[in-house]
Design a protein around this nucleic acid. Structure first.
Lengths: 201, 201, 201, 201
DNA sequence: CATGAATGAGTATTCATTCAT
DNA sequence: GATGAATGAATACTCATTCAT
């Protein structure tokens, strides 16, 4: 029995918090259950009481972290603002989310990205598809707004899927390259500006 | 003697070719020397006669593959064409290169992108810095041309580094998402168009 | 579960016992973890739960085996008997210890004795110094008694360090050459006699 | 063709010289053929033209180095001096030899000493017996002189074999512990004195 | 529920030796 | 004789997972 009554944050949450730190810091492969339990101050078996294996622990982490983000995205997309305003607001949401979760998401992306069938990733294909679906859904939010812009004639005809992925890639790149300073709003404005009007004079 | 007369491709090259396939398919960690030698139809010791270790084998692969690409980039950058033309030509070069080398470069990026300082990657910090320098140099080609455009007044004032990284990220994303069809030139045109003039009407 | 109730000797002890046999028989280099676990009837990981690596397993072996011996030496040295009696008693202790531990100690000596600075031994210099300290301390027991003899005038002036090492080398040689029969006391007497009074008539 | 006419020291000797340095410095196991040929500035195959394998190369080294030493021993033993003088002269010869060859002999001793039958040593039992015979013969020189001393009544009755091994061990210990300074004769005198008359007053 | 001792599959690397040239 | 490219056997160590308590 490790602690008596101060079990406010459940064992499960303690493990998740520790896992977040370790996965973010070490990546998926180099993160060890041993390090996670040391940080969570719990036993090894306990982890396996709450999570079926390392992979599912990681997945749970991703899912729980992204839920509020997804809700926020949906709210903006479903709102009544003009499309161009929505675009900028979405960019801000993305930036805020990735600035906070950059490390964990970088880790996830790597394990998921592989296309080939066999064993490039630590994850089973089935599992990876779930992560990919998450990406598709998330980037789909951008797509919807772009399509709305086209329908309203404020955005010119183009392949919205490609455009959305392109915008997404720029956002993520800015974060990963640590180009995003404290003023996330300014960065969002810049990205939106270039994305909408280009860099040509 | 494993092969008799078909020694056209040297042992070294056989190993490199096999390593290319295995690294591309499995990623760095999951690629095993055993699989590489099986594919190269050679002995394990032979690999270590030509390459000091797994990491250096991987590095050699990267270096030899990228050399012609870098030369082509330099030629365009040093050319006399107008900046906007150069931009499109660079985009084409990047697309062609990444379409061919997508898998291997994805693998490399993961090991390099690294995060903090310690040991999240399979590579030593020193080694990773070499890869990062390669990226900086490559993306630097884009930067130069953008700056040239600004100097000539055809591109508006902006942070060329961020712009270059943004453009780069879009290119890579298009490739990784397999949005690039057979007509690379068309894709390049589209990317250039949007990058230069934005998507707003 | 490998064994049911005969868990009297802990896993750790089983491994140490097996390691003792294998190291003694094969030497440090040629002893393999695989052979040790086969003899200990346990899993490979178990060894690494108790010992950080092969070297530390070996070190633990040495340390645990020598502890009682050192205590016995200290008792004699600290006793009130005349120096010449102490010398003989120490010789007996050394003989008894080395007769039992001859093989393991031979192995250790080789790895430690080391030469220059670099890597001729399987052990890191730092580690080797610990073993050497052990030798110095052990032979130091002989030195102390010899010095006591000189102080009391029963032993003539001489370099006690060299004398102690000489006496030590003779003891070890007798053991390694299997010159020591069942009657350890007789052998000790002979050694003491010659050491003290020489072989000249 | 590495060198043209300056082949005064034959290839064979070049290899032996290099092997001496490397074996002395690195020990038997850690000495590599690669390092030896690098030092000898020759090809790997060449080594195997002159020596059947690593072990026999080592053996040749030992044999060639010890020949003059053995001759010198035999000369003293066969001489007409009084036994006690011979003892001191032998000690001097041993000291001189081991001071020069300490490292190589230390290496040899380790590989040979093991008693058990199987695989404690890098050498086959058959081979090891050859080294042991060399030791027996060498120490036998001491034995003979001691026996001569007993026969002539200047040395008291004792087990000459044990006495010889004891004397030998002391000599070697002094060398290995670097207790032997530049004045080998003085050291020899001291050893002889204590060996003959003991340390008791 | 919590624990942690036990497990073993999986892998990069070294180096003596061979043999075709 | 000289060479060195090719070879492959041999080995310590990690870490996710299980399961008896």
């Amino acid at each position: 029995m490790r602690e008596s009554g101060e079990d406010s944050r459940s064992r499960r949450q303690q493990i998740l918090d520790a896992a977040y730190k370790v996965f973010s810091q070490k990546g998926y492969h180099r993160a060890t259950i041993d390090e996670i339990i040391a940080l969570a101050d719990t036993g090894k078996g306990t982890v396996y009481n709450y999570f079926v294996n390392k992979e599912q622990l990681f997945y749970t982490l991703i899912k729980e972290r992204s839920a509020p983000f997804e809700a926020a995205l949906a709210e903006v997309v479903g709102g009544a603002e003009p499309p161009l305003v929505k675009v900028e607001r979405l960019i801000k949401l993305f930036l805020r989310f990735y600035v906070v979760n950059a490390d964990l998401w970088r880790v996830m992306m790597h394990e998921v990205r592989g296309f080939g069938s066999e064993g490039q990733s630590a994850f089973k294909e089935e599992q990876r598809e779930k992560y990919r679906a998450w990406f598709r859904h998330t980037i789909g939010m951008l797509e919807k707004v772009l399509q709305e812009g086209i329908d309203q004639g404020v955005i010119r005809e183009c392949d919205v899927t490609k455009a959305a992925y392109g915008l997404f890639s720029v956002i993520v790149m800015m974060v990963f390259q640590k180009f995003v300073g404290d003023d996330i709003d300014a960065t969002a404005k810049t990205i939106a500006n270039i994305f909408l009007y280009g860099i040509a004079r």
